[in-house]
Each structure stands twice: as C-alpha cells, then as structure tokens.
Design a protein around this nucleic acid. Structure first.
Length: 578
RNA sequence: GCCCCCUUAGCUCAGUUGGAUAGAGCAUCGGACUUCUAAUCCGAGGGUCAGAGGUUCAAAUCCUCUAGGGGGUACCA
C-alpha cells in the first residue's frame, strides 16, 4: 500500500512545487475508509499560501490532474482525500499475492546483512516457566520476520548453564542425594533440588561457601564436578527440546554460557590491553561512573566470573566467528542496565560494531501473589511460577474438548488439537506490544473466542474449506472488477498493506504489528463471510455465477495466503480444518 | 534516593510516530445456524485517554511536575 503513496505524491508535486519525497511522509490514512485511501492535510500550506487550509483543499481538489491508479480526489474540510481505482488495485494486489504466494510480504532491505538473535536462553536445572514463552516466541518471530525482509539470521539459545548456582546444585546433590526411585521426571526432581539448594544457601553460610567452592572446582575442570554438571545439562536439554518441538522453535546454535568459558580470560585480557580494567574492592571491574552506571563486574573477589564476563566473551566470539552486522538480545526489560553496561564497555573498547548490538526488551510476566493479591514477577527460583508445559497442555486439552463437540469427525484431531492449543498460547503472547508487562491469566489464554490464535486459525480454515469446495471455474482469469462489495474493497486494501506491516515489524522489532494487522484482516473476512449467510447473493461460491465465484475465490485465496504467511512468521500453525 | 517501563470502557488491550467523530476483544444485555465451518457475525450500553500545567493551527501521542503500579540499582542470572 505504501507504494501507492508515490502515485498520490506525483499528483501533488507540481501544484505544491515540492518533490514527491517530501510529500509521501505527509500522507495519512483517513479515519473513515469511505472517505478515501490517503489524506493530505493542508495545514502546513496555510502559512506559506496565506489561505485557510479548507480553501486550499477545496482549490486543489479542483485543480489537480489525476493519473491512474488515482481515481478521485475530494476536499473534506482541511484535508484532501484521494481514492485509488478499485479495479486496478484489486487486480494488482490479488495478482501479486497469487504470483508471490508464500513470498508475499517479503522484502529485501536486509539483503547482504546478517543478524544474530539471542533468544529463549533459559537456565539449566529449572523447568521452563510460562514466562519463557516471551523470549522464545518474540525471538522466533523476529527471526522469521527479519528473514522475510532479506536478512540472514542465526538464532542462538544462550543457555544459562554456568555460574555459582551450579556449584550450589552440586553441593545440594552431595548433601541431599538423588532419589533414583522417585516417581517423577528427572527435570522435576532437579528443579526441586535447585530450589532447595538456593534456600539452603540463604539459610546456611557454610553450605553457600561449599557451593562456591564447587563452582571453582567446576571452572577448574574438576572431573567429578564436570560429570555432575554435564548430567544436569543433559536432563534439562531433553526437557527443553520437548517444549521447543511443541512450539515449533529451533536454533542454529545452542551454546550455553559454559561454551564461552575458555574465551573469558581472552575477553578480559582484551579489555585490559585497552586500559579499561581496574581493581575495586577486590573485584575486577570496568568503571562506568562517568556514564552514571555502576561498574561492570568481570571477576568477583574470589576470582569467579559473572554473567557480564560471560556475555562479554560471548559477544566477542559471535562477532569474530559469525561476523554479524546486527546482534539482537531478546531479553526481559529487567536487564536493561546489564545490556547498557555491556554495550558501553565494548564501545569504550573501541568496537564500533557495538552500536549495532541491541537489547530488545519485553515486559515481565506478572503472577498474582495469592497472599497479597498483588501482581509481581513470578520466579522459578521460589517455585511460584506456572510452567510453560502445563499451560500448553491445558490449551491443547481445551482445543481437543472443543473439537469433540464442534467437529467430531475431523481427521488428525490430535494433531490439530496440538496446533490450536499451541497457537492459542503463542498468539496470546505476540498480539500485544512487547514492552508491556503481561498479567498471567490462564483463563484468558485458553479462551478461543475473540482476538485469539484459534480465531485466526479458524478464519484460515474457513478460507481453506471454501476453496476446497470451489468449482473448477476459479481457474479462469478472474474479473477483478466484479469485486464491488464494500467488504471486498476493504479486504483488498488490508491485503495490500500487509507487506508494510511486515516491514514495520522488522524495523521496530515488534511482532505485534503483524499480529494486529492479521487480526484486522480476519475480522473483515469473517464479517464478509457472515453477510453471505443472510444474503445468498453475497456468498463466495455462487453456483449461478461463475465469474463472480472466480473473483471471490481469488480474493479468498489471497486472504488465506496472507493469513498463512503472517501466522507462519509468528510461529502459529495453520490447520486447514478444525 | 537515583534510573527505566507502564497508566486509554468493568477487565485485557489497539491507536498509522502530532491530525478529522478515541477503536477492538472479553464480560453484560438483545438478535442471526435447513446455508461456503456459529471457535463466527450483527446490534446496545459502557470514556474527564491517571491528574495538573505547558508547547501549537492541531495532543491519548511531545515537554515539565504530581499520584499509582511494575522492574532495576557491583560481587545472582
């Protein structure tokens, strides 16, 4: 749709005496679709022309010469409203969608550029909590969206598999043991041990010290410590992969923090060579007080490395080995300061590429505290967060039960239930602006009605269903001028704007732009569909009118293509029946 | 204390980067299935855009202050 602004600007360029480049950004979309496709506000001309904007609009409306595809111009108060030619628009848009198929919505701004995205990145030894859906799916969606716009993208699941907690975990294992006969999955027992280790460390200073020593042994390569640790990681990865399979997410790299352990000394040395590292209170730091930030800690008093050290080594490695142009960190907002420090340190070290590293923050998942009634950050450490697996299972159950009544004969019911349940959870997370905190509300997540994943999937299934029963006539060249219904014209325009939505989502790193646009398309299509229930003349398939059927089937196919393309970007599956 | 984010209908949220009459969904109430899938659609009610100033032709949108909520703030990740 963006491309048509150029045509409008050309009509205005001569009379305004301005180049099209300055006119295009001034064009707006009128609040009422019936008023036109683009609006040019005349306020800014008022001063220069010494006339009221209303007069300017009225005058210009008279004088302008229009060229296809611009069909009409009308003054509406201080605005000049332009309308595109419906027939040309329908033809161009629907033909483009049919021709490009799953490439419709793609672009090439990112061509020749490589992006590395750090997302999901759960901590080992804990189950995936519901809040892990955020980084995982926002990251996955951004990966797909950037790829659609021409970037080469590599995803890295930066597992939290290193640090003092693992020393504590080994200490807990040694002290409390492991119950091989326990009737729970290993990950559950491991998670429980993790929580216990943490609590014990808080209550017992000796235990905490033992844990810290274990981590030192781990870093030193002690075989016993390594063996325990490796096993903790394997148990966790087995569990994570189950959930990733369900979500349809995969990574080019799964390099935990431990992988970068051998690179940490080099990273520190590199900063030392640049004179950035100082000793403060017994710790090794980069002083950032000149930038109103606390120091970036590289090594603790006891010599152990920290989160910052590992992230630093990781980023240097990624740049050196993977040669990214852009590196994105899809991590919650609570870590804004950490990333500000990290990027500042690299900037001070003289790495100009640090400017192309970005933290893509998102809001926290808040759980209602049953005692205080307040919304607060859930924590797997305290064991009070809902598990992602549990929510997904509940959503799948919801879909299964729903289908048992609405479509009991459906083939592949179990597969579809999984697609719908998982789609519900994913879409629920991606439909809103990522920086908002989200209040965990399982009931809302499982509701399949309204602005939800199942609603989107249902709409796509309706398209598939009608096209499956469409007669062969749809293969004749559609007469696009037959698409004269208000709903049909509105749909064509929204389909035309879909690539703009993908481009904006890529530019602002905001998947919800795509989700919101798809919602608007689905709403229009469902409304269009239902009108056919009341008025048979408005049905898509008209046995009595082959040409009309062909045109409407072409529109339906285009809607289906765009819904499928968009939902694919978001990671929402699209069953053809449900 | 300082820093960041948030505050739009009872609830959950959109709002085209400063434009025309602030829009959806859920919930409530009333309608539409002998039909291309009713996980849908149509309609009704529901608003001091947290509050107060400011910037200008124009503010939910930008600036300042205030209130409330969430998060962060050197040896956790």
């Amino acid at each position: 749709m963006e491309a048509y602004k150029e045509a409008i600007a050309e009509c205005l360029a001569e009379p305004l005496g301005q180049p099209t480049e300055t006119i295009v950004p001034m064009l707006r979309t009128p609040p009422e679709a019936a008023w036109g496709d683009f609006a040019f506000p005349c306020f800014t001309l008022a001063k220069a022309w010494r006339q009221a904007p209303q007069q300017i609009a009225a005058q210009l409306a008279q004088e302008l010469t229009l060229a296809a595809p611009v069909a009409a111009v009308a003054a509406h108060g201080p605005y000049l409203n332009f309308t595109l030619d419906d027939d040309i628009l329908s033809r161009e848009v629907l033909e483009a969608i049919a021709r490009q198929g799953e490439r419709y919505g793609c672009g090439d701004e990112g061509r020749g550029r490589k992006a590395v995205i750090d997302y999901s990145s759960p901590n080992v030894a804990k189950e995936l909590a519901f809040h892990h859906i955020r980084s995982t799916m926002i990251g996955h969606a951004l990966k797909q969206i950037l790829e659609a716009r021409g970037y080469r993208v590599e995803g890295d699941n930066h597992l939290g598999d290193w640090g003092t907690p693992f020393g504590l975990l080994i200490a807990a294992y040694e002290r409390f043991g492991w119950d091989d006969a326990a009737d729970v999955e290993d990950i559950v027992q491991l998670n429980a041990l993790y929580v216990r280790a943490r609590n014990e460390a808080k209550a017992d200073a000796d235990f905490a010290a033992t844990g810290r020593r274990w981590f030192q042994r781990l870093e030193a390569g002690d075989p016993q410590a390594r063996k325990r640790w490796r096993w903790f990681v394997d148990v966790s990865l087995t569990e994570f992969d189950k959930v990733y399979d369900l979500l349809g997410v995969s990574f080019e790299h799964t390099l935990g923090e431990s992988f970068f352990e051998p690179y940490m000394d080099d990273a520190i040395a590199e900063l030392q060579a640049r004179g950035l590292v100082t000793k403060s209170q017994g710790a090794l730091v980069v002083d950032l007080s000149a930038y109103d930030m606390p120091p970036c800690l590289l090594k603790k008093q006891d010599g152990a490395t920290l989160y910052s050290t590992r992230d630093l080594a990781t980023l240097l490695y990624r740049r050196r080995e993977w040669r990214f142009d852009t590196c994105l960190y899809v991590v919650d907002m609570g870590q804004s300061l950490h990333f500000a420090q990290l990027f500042k340190v690299l900037d001070l070290a003289g790495f100009e590429w640090a400017a192309n590293c970005h933290h893509i923050p998102f809001g926290l998942v808040l759980q209602r505290n049953p005692e205080s009634g307040k919304w607060e950050k859930g924590s797997t450490r305290q064991g009070n967060a809902s598990l992602l697996k549990t929510v997904l299972e509940a959503a799948i159950r919801m879909a299964r039960e729903r289908m048992a009544v609405s479509n009991p004969d459906l083939a592949d019911a179990e597969l579809v239930a999984r697609q719908v349940g998982v789609g519900a959870v994913i879409f629920n997370d991606l439909k809103n602006r990522r920086t908002r905190d989200v209040k965990f509300d399982q009931e809302a997540i499982l509701n399949p009605q309204g602005e939800t994943g199942p609603y989107m999937q249902y709409t796509q299934a309706r398209c598939a269903s009608v096209l499956a029963t469409a007669p062969e006539t749809i293969h004749v060249e559609p007469l696009y001028e037959l698409l004269q219904q208000r709903e049909e014209r509105a749909l064509v325009r929204k389909l035309a704007a879909y690539p703009d939505a993908v481009a904006e989502a890529a530019r602002t790193w905001e998947p919800s732009v795509v989700a919101q646009h798809l919602l608007a398309i689905a709403a229009d299509f469902n409304s269009y569909w239902t009108r056919g229930n009341k008025d048979p003349g408005l049905r898509i398939l008209r046995p009595d009118a082959a040409d009309l059927t062909a045109a409407r089937a072409a529109l339906t196919a285009a809607v289906q293509t765009v819904l499928c393309n968009g939902l694919k970007l978001l990671g929402v599956p699209t069953p053809d029946a449900m």
